[in-house]
């Protein structure tokens, strides 16, 4: 009997290297963070130094002083010092003439909150490294507290629902847009459901980091923190894109572009009903979220109408 030999799908072509992580590592079952890290190591290869911090990724990235969970060089930081430590590493490698992908890998809690100053500083200095933020909309590692990227209405352990509380009562910080406004060479959003898009952006990051800071914002829902069945995490990523809740875009030298267009977006309720953190919301409250999603998307659309830095707007009359 002749064995069927089939051609691997195209996505596998992005995986240039083998997985640098041990087969079994301490991430929750179904966690997209684990997938993000493994894909990152496959796409970026071994000339990569990961810089990280206490977070869900820490138990795996840090290793112990008798061994490591992965075969990548890793630099462990405090929450405040990720982008600045990466700066120190990058500058030394530059001085020593070594070409290295220095990749910061943190959650939104570090990137948007406690580590934001150093990230912003590194962006302004246009340091030659890649900052990957895995966005799970809160402090998942310490037990699901709110962060500044937690969406309005979401319940967390510090924004609980009660007689007076209705979940988080302020809007999320739009970190990828804020980073793009630093005029860095490359900013992009990505998520796991759109793997080719994600892998392409990781590849591009390695090129663009030669020009300066690259910021990748990867949507990574937390099965435990958001109340998602462990097999549903990729579905949630997909629905976030389909509702325009998490549009996939990139900004290259100031030129904004949607990398995934959604012809007829799903209503936000299709997304919010997928997990527990929005369960308590009334129709009125959900309408607020819908309005916010629409506004953010329209805003982004406007940005895509402008040319790159140093170029005139493509169609200025559209801006009216």
């Amino acid at each position: 009997m002749v064995e069927k030999v089939r051609k691997l799908p195209k996505t596998f072509q992005y995986f240039k290297d083998e997985d640098a992580f041990a087969g079994g590592v301490a991430f929750c079952a179904g966690c997209p963070l684990e997938l993000t890290l493994r894909v990152l190591s496959k796409v970026m290869g071994r000339q990569t130094v990961i810089v990280g911090t206490p977070s869900c990724s820490a138990p795996v990235l840090y290793g112990q002083n008798v061994g490591a969970w992965h075969k990548l060089p890793y630099y462990s930081c405090l929450m405040t010092g990720v982008a600045s430590s990466a700066t120190g590493l990058t500058r030394y490698y530059k001085k020593a003439g070594q070409d290295v992908n220095v990749v910061c890998f943190t959650g939104d809690g570090c990137a948007a909150d406690i580590g934001f100053q150093t990230l912003s500083g590194a962006a302004e200095r246009n340091e030659n490294f890649i900052y990957v933020c895995y966005e799970n909309e809160g402090y998942m590692n310490t037990g699901i507290q709110r962060s500044s990227t937690t969406p309005i209405g979401a319940t967390t352990s510090t924004t609980p629902v009660g007689v007076a509380g209705r979940g988080k009562n302020t809007q999320a910080k739009n970190l990828p847009l804020i980073m793009a406004m630093h005029n860095i060479p490359y900013t992009a959003t990505a998520t796991l459901s759109h793997m080719d898009d994600l892998a392409k952006k990781m590849q591009k990051a390695m090129e663009k980091k030669k020009e300066g800071l690259v910021y990748l914002h990867i949507f990574c829902p937390c099965p435990v923190g958001w109340g998602i069945e462990s097999d549903m995490s990729i579905q949630v990523c997909r629905e976030a894109v389909k509702t325009n809740y998490f549009p996939l875009w990139e900004a290259e030298n100031g030129k904004f572009k949607l990398t995934q267009t959604v012809s007829s977006p799903d209503p936000i309720t299709k997304y919010t009903k997928m997990f527990k953190k929005f369960n308590h919301l009334t129709e009125k409250e959900l309408a607020v979220i819908q309005a916010e999603v629409d506004h953010n998307f329209a805003f982004l659309k406007h940005l895509t109408e402008f040319g790159a830095h140093g170029q005139p707007a493509e169609s200025p009359e559209n801006n009216a």
Partner: peptide, 28 residues
Amino acid sequence: AIYCPPQCMKIMPDHFEPDLNFCKGCGV
């Protein structure tokens, strides 16, 4: 194989097979 969070789907000639040493059973 692409979406398997622990990336433990072994590539066989005509199908994919989970490495049960590591598969956490998430069901993705």
